[in-house]
Design a protein around this nucleic acid. Structure first.
Lengths: 232, 232
DNA sequence: TTTCGTCTTTACGAATTCTTGACGCTTTAT
DNA sequence: ATAAAGCGTCAAGAATTCGTAAAGACGAAA
């Protein structure tokens, strides 16, 4: 659902090693990662994070995984991939019929999981020709699905870094994001000291998106801390 | 697609015993059954029978199953479940990225196959009906049914790769598609670094489809990201 | 075998984007 | 008040990415 730039995955898994493993592989492959340690937390995070995919371990402490699948399906269409140690056919049939979209037996291969994740997300993207997630502020409109930004309804061009920065700001709209956090999200964690980059790119964004770049109304500096995007 | 009475399944499989076995089980479980013994026959029966699901064996005599999957996906969204004796992860990834919706290793359980068939058909039921097979932009007209492209009403010839690239662009018309995504859809997931392929084929497409190839109005470059097709 | 069409690979100039440093302004600390 | 630090702006050179043509590789058909 979160159409900004990266697809996001919610992993519901109580075993820490597998969770860590999934976090690494998924983050490495361009997914933003969220986690829940039990069914209850999983349900609430599906609602709050709106992930584009749920990966769900059947053996959770507080609720049967099949039951959880059914609960999710009562109100959400988010793709679900079930992981399980159980290889019996009966389990697979139950999970799939409960509403799961795929079923993988542990141990599974990373590449296969990633490929099946792509299939699940591809399905979801095609389903209802859902409206793109569009964010507006001032005279600016951002269509993340089309990667299109308009100012006063005239299309304008953003470079990759400009767009990534804008996306990061939108992702955390309304709140302050620290320099470190922004640099990590856009350039990677080796660049957390290059606050210089932010100054240059914020200036470029303001020049393109603000009516008066010298008096920004939306791309706000939080001195000594970071930046924030004011919507409205 | 045949939503009226029974869902129909097309099995593309050269080994007679498996074919017979599938025929029995599927018929027993309320599916109407069609069969094809090779890839060529499979392609033509998908067009003529419009099945609601294709079950496809990778080891066909006349064409690589992965390639067949990709060919089907150029013009059809019918759900595809791949059967294979090969359990290697690489094969699964290739098939799934080529457009298959699921992958089962032989020997497989009947109940599991049936459950996965239900999932596939459930997905298809949710997605919107087949997209229009004729697309126009500028002076270009594309008829996907006939695999025919005209410029100013004069027919012009596209090579297989040119056509695949164009089809991928049309499939995502209006939005930016990343290099990785295009390469994955056209050449497969092992080619995601060969961005130079895109450059030469985009150039060839522009030469054939744009009035002024140096100033493209429809086949647009998004520097550092990918390409997009602007209709209108 | 040759021929033909297509695909793959290479090379290089052109275009775009990124990085870097300089400079001046403002705010904060001393 | 002065110094120091943080910020905004600009622009030049570096680095990357693109477009294009053309040559070699490959396979199918004659």
């Amino acid at each position: 659902m979160n159409n900004f730039d990266k697809p996001s995955v919610l992993v519901i898994e109580d075993e820490a090693p597998i969770r860590r493993f999934l976090k690494l592989t998924l983050s490495d492959h361009g997914y933003s990662f969220h986690e829940a340690l039990n069914a209850r937390e999983g349900l609430s995070k599906i609602a709050s994070e709106q992930p584009s995919l749920v990966i769900l371990d059947l053996g959770l402490p507080d609720m049967d995984g099949i039951e959880l699948t059914r609960e999710i399906r009562e109100w959400s269409k988010v793709p679900i991939i079930v992981l399980s140690a159980r290889e019996q056919e009966k389990d697979k049939v139950l999970a799939l019929d409960a509403g799961a979209d795929d079923y993988l037996t542990k141990p599974f291969g990373v590449q296969e999981l990633l490929a099946r994740a792509r299939v699940a997300i591809r399905h979801a993207a095609k389903s209802p020709p859902q409206a793109d997630s569009i964010v507006t502020f001032g005279q600016v409109k951002i269509d993340f699905g089309k990667r299109l930004v308009t100012f006063n309804d005239t299309e304008l061009h953003l470079t990759p870094n400009e767009f990534k920065l804008l996306a990061a700001l939108v992702r955390h709209a309304g709140r302050v994001i620290t320099h470190t956090q922004l640099l990590r999200e856009i350039w990677g964690s080796e660049y957390t000291d290059e606050t210089h980059y932010l100054r240059v790119y914020m200036a470029q964004l303001r020049r393109k998106l603000e009516t008066d770049p010298a008096q920004p109304r939306h791309l706000i500096t939080e001195p000594g801390v970071g930046y924030k995007l004011k919507l409205d």
